[in-house]
Every structure is written in structure tokens, then in C-alpha cells.
Amino acid sequence: MSLVQHLACACGEVELTAEKAPIASVECYCDSCRAAGLRLQRLPGAPPVLGGHGGTRYVLHRKDRIRFAGGRERMKAFRLSPDAGSRRIVAGCCHTPLFLEFKGGHWLSLYGGLWPAGTLPPLQMRTMTGDLADPSALPDDVPNLRRQSGPFFLALLKAWIAMGFRSPRIPVEGDIDA
């Protein structure tokens, strides 16, 4: 995998780069990601968000390793509810989901759909499968975790330590209704 991955929304107006190796490459099945995915992929011209089994593909990167190269003013925030502790950032130009950010988090969960064909890092695990009615329908090619695991949280902690316990802010102007 390249040490620098150039990513963009579907129309190319919002550009970013992800530097160095990701923290993890996952597919999330939590109720929140599935509900948000359904709503986001219904926006006009939006690409699919949910995969064949209903999960959302993410590549987690440290915030200090993400660079916004263009179109930052087009980024819009989407929250499932006004008091949600997370926000999903969408390209307002073409409704491409860009990333999920947790309040106070030091990482971004970049949507897998940003990666050009053939460059998405391999899936390492599925998380939050306990929220599914029937998780047995999932393939067994990677671990299917009912919740996030100890090693998952350890990887996040190691990244935070390496960042000096910082959590950079990512300002986004405006919201999008989905």
C-alpha cells in the first residue's frame, strides 16, 4: 500500500490525502452506522454506503495524518440527532460520505467508498455485529466481533499516545439534512 493515498468525493471537488498506514480497516454493523448509511445513500446522486450485508466500510486514520487538499468549504455535517456524539461529514457537492468523526476522537473513520478501485485496504474485522438480527449470515473471512475488541481499542490508544494525546479539531461549516 502507498504511504500516501489520494482520495476524493465522487465529483472530485473535495480532495484529501491519508498518510501512512491506517489504524484499522473495518466494516461496522452498529445500528447508528446502518441508519446513517440508509439515509446518506438516499441523498440525490449519493453513492452506496451500505455493503451487501448492510455494514458500512471504514478505514480508520489518525487525524494528524489526514490532509484536506481542496473543497473543504463544501464539507457538510450530518447528525442522526441534534445531540449525537458523532457526526458524519458529507461532500455537499455530490453527497459523497467522507468520514465519521466522534466527538473528542483523535481519529477519522474514512468511508471506504473514497478509495479508488483496487486500493481499499483489506478488511481486518467486522465490528458491532451484535446489533444484527442474524449475524450468522456474515461471511467468516475475517473476525465478526459482537462489539469492539480489546485489540481494536488498544490500536486506537496506541495511535492517541503517538499523537501526544491530541485530538485536532476539524471545522465544518454548515449541515446537511438526510
Rank of each mutant, 00 (worst) to 15 (best):
W107A: 15
L60N: 12
R65H: 13
L60S: 14
S86C: 12
A84L: 05
R57G: 02
L108C: 08
H95A: 14
L123D: 13
H53P: 10
A77L: 03
F78S: 02
A77F: 00
G85D: 13
H106D: 15
G105V: 04
L80Q: 14
L80E: 14
R57Y: 05
F68D: 00
T127F: 03
M75H: 01
R62S: 15
S86E: 14
P82L: 01
L138G: 11
G92R: 03
D83M: 10
G130C: 07
D64F: 00
G85L: 10
G104A: 08
K63G: 07
I66G: 05
R62A: 15
F99T: 04
L120I: 09
G54A: 11
Y111V: 14
F99L: 12
L60F: 13
H106R: 06
G55T: 08
M125L: 15
K76F: 02
G112D: 03
G130P: 07
I89W: 00
F99N: 03
T129K: 10
Y111T: 14
F68K: 00
W107Q: 13
D83R: 13
G130H: 10
K63D: 04
G52L: 12
M75F: 01
P97I: 02
G51P: 05
T96H: 04
M125A: 15
S86M: 12
L114H: 01
C94K: 06
A91R: 03
F99K: 00
P116H: 09
K103H: 15
S136H: 13
C93M: 09
R67E: 05
R67G: 01
P116M: 05
D131M: 08
L110H: 07
G104S: 06
A91V: 05
R72C: 02
C93L: 05
T56L: 07
F99Q: 03
A91D: 06
R67Y: 00
Y58I: 07
Y111W: 10
R79F: 02
G70S: 13
A77M: 05
E73M: 02
S81M: 10
R62K: 14
E73K: 04
A84H: 09
C93H: 09
W115V: 07
Y58A: 06
A117C: 07
K63S: 12
G113I: 02
G71T: 00
D64K: 04
D134C: 10
Q124L: 13
R87I: 04
L120N: 11
G85S: 13
R65I: 02
R62E: 14
E73G: 08
T119D: 10
F99H: 11
L80T: 13
F68I: 04
M128A: 15
F78D: 02
R67C: 05
